[in-house]
Design a protein around this nucleic acid. Sequence first.
DNA 1: CGATAATATTTCGAAGTCGAACTATCCGAC
DNA 2: GTCGGATAGTTCGACTTCGAAATATTATCG
Lengths: 151, 151
Amino acid sequence: MPTHFTGSRAEMRTLDTFIKLTRCTNSLLARLAERNTIGDLTYSQFAVLEALYHLGSMTQGEVGSKILKSTSNITTVIDNLERAGLVRRERDAQDRRVIHIHLTEAGSGKVEAVLPGHVAALVDEFSILSTGEQQTLGELCKKLGKGRESE
Amino acid sequence: MPTHFTGSRAEMRTLDTFIKLTRCTNSLLARLAERNTIGDLTYSQFAVLEALYHLGSMTQGEVGSKILKSTSNITTVIDNLERAGLVRRERDAQDRRVIHIHLTEAGSGKVEAVLPGHVAALVDEFSILSTGEQQTLGELCKKLGKGRESE
DNA sequence: CGATAATATTTCGAAGTCGAACTATCCGAC
DNA sequence: GTCGGATAGTTCGACTTCGAAATATTATCG
C-alpha cells in the first residue's frame, strides 16, 4: 500500500516502515509458496508438523500457542492433518479435556522429506542479505515483535 | 516456530531470522487487530479502501496488484465492500471486460474516520524502535522483499 | 473476415482464520 | 459432596485466500 497519507514526519516514517515490513513478509512467503518447498502441505499444516517433529507431542493448546493461532483454527488444521494420516489424536487419561497430538510415521516422514528443501530455499532467499544484515534484521524484528508490554 | 533444526551455521542463522521476521509481522498485526484500529473492517477491506482513497479509482486488477492478492480474492472482497455500500463497481464503456472500482461517500468517510487512529496505533507500536532503527528495518525489508530477481 | 490468443473478471472447491457460543471436564470453596 | 468458575476443545458463521476452470470480451494474425 504505497500511501499518500500526509502526516507528520514521524507518521510518514512509521507508515513507510510498516508497509515495507508487511510487503517483505508477504512477498517472501509468496515466493516460497511459488517454489513449492513444502509439497502439498499448506503453511499452517507444515508449521504444525514441524513443531511436533522438533518439540515432540503436544496438546492442541500447546500447538496453538506455538504457531500463534486460535484454538478453533487448530481444531480445523488438526482435522485435516488427521484425515491425511499425518497426525494422531489421543485423549489424556488423567485429564479428559486435553488431547495430545502425535506425529504418525507418515507425518515425520513428510517432515523429513520436505524440510531440507524448505531450508535450502530460505537460505537462498536470504542470501541477498549479508550475515550482519540478517542479524540486524532479526534483532529489530524481535524487538518490534515483542512490543511495548515486554519492556 | 522455535525450531531445533540442526543444520549448518548459515542455515541456523537464516531459519532464526525467518522465524523472527514472520513472528514479528504476525504479532504486530495481531496487536493492531486487538486495538481495533480499523473498526468493523477486515484488514483486506481496509487495504482496498485505503488504496482507493489515496490513489483514486482503479480497476479490480489494479487493486489486486496494489494489495498483492489474487484476482479471485479481489472479487470476493469487493463483493463484500459493495454490499456494505463502501464501494461502487462500474463497467468500462470502451473495454467491457474491465471494471472500475470507486469509493462511495460512505467509503471515503469510513477511511477518514479510521485512518488517523490506525496511524496513531502504528506510531505507538513502532515507537519501541528509534528513528534510525526504523530506517534500517525498512531498508532491510525492502531488500529482502524484492528478492534476487531484482538484482 | 474469422479463428485463435490474450485479458479481465467470476465461479467453485478446499483450506485457513477469527470470535462467540457451546460442551465436557476438572478444580476449589463452601 | 456439590455448585460455580476455570480450562480444553468443538461448532458455527462470516470472511479471506488460492488455484483451476469457466465466461466474456478484446486483440491479433493469417
